[in-house]
Amino acid sequence: MLSYHYVRPRLLPEALAALQREGAEARVLAGGTTLVRQLKQQRVPVSLLVDIKHIPDLHSIRIDSRSGSRIGTTLTLEELAAHAGVQKYYPLLAEACAAVPAWQVRNRATLGGEICVGSRRSAILAALLCYEAAVTLHGAAGEQVRPLSDFIRDVYSDKSLLHGVLLSHILLGPRLRRFGAVFRGLYQYPGQRHPVVGAAVAASYYEGNFQHARVIISGVNPHLQRYTDVEQILMEGTLDEDRLQRAAVELGQALHPVDTTQASAEYQRAMALHLFRQAVQGLRTQLGNSK
């Protein structure tokens, strides 16, 4: 039978010390919306829970449109959805957090938890990738800052990278001028936790051209990622139908869907391309270029 200890540190170093002392069977407990389910199913070996919700620094948020923002890992989805600064400067993040259907989940689930679970269908992670988020990690090797996209990719291939590691903050870059981000998702029903397939497109817009383009497709490939070749095509020149078509073709080649019970590979691909076009269209509208 599982039996584990519980600690509630008030300071980050205490939490790190506890994690490192305990080794692989220590788990970070934030909102618990995923971990508590795993504990009930007794599928993961656990000897210690480190509850990080009472470390003030991890629950701090600083939004600065010029120098960049820093969001504590234990901010809940509800807090982010309701935060005026997030709504103003990172509206897609606020929107994605608000779109998680159950209020009870939004009140508990944290941004850090969403990242560590790393669902390939997460619209919240897609939004973070649009804002080129980075994460601050604390582990045996000390503190390091890594791009979120790298972190997601690495954890996907090796879950054990999360052991003994604490994600303390999410860093978002300064706000670019004339920058927008749009997400379009396909839901089986309005209150679905994650869309089956989604497309996020972000860019800034100067003199008819996209710059800083970011393209993310959720739910199709094994983990969330940016499609930089597609982004390149979008930024090469005026975004006409021909260029958009080339971008879509490029995107199609980068997608490797497999059949799931929710959607066939064929449908996933068709919807990803459709939603990509919808997102580009939405972004143009948002940035005031309806052409």
């Binding site: 259907p101 089986q188 029903y189 309005p190 209150g191 679905q192």
Partner: peptide, 8 residues
């Protein structure tokens, strides 16, 4: 298994 929600 989806049972109709308020939002449906």
């Amino acid at each position: 298994y989806h049972v109709a929600m308020f939002t449906d």
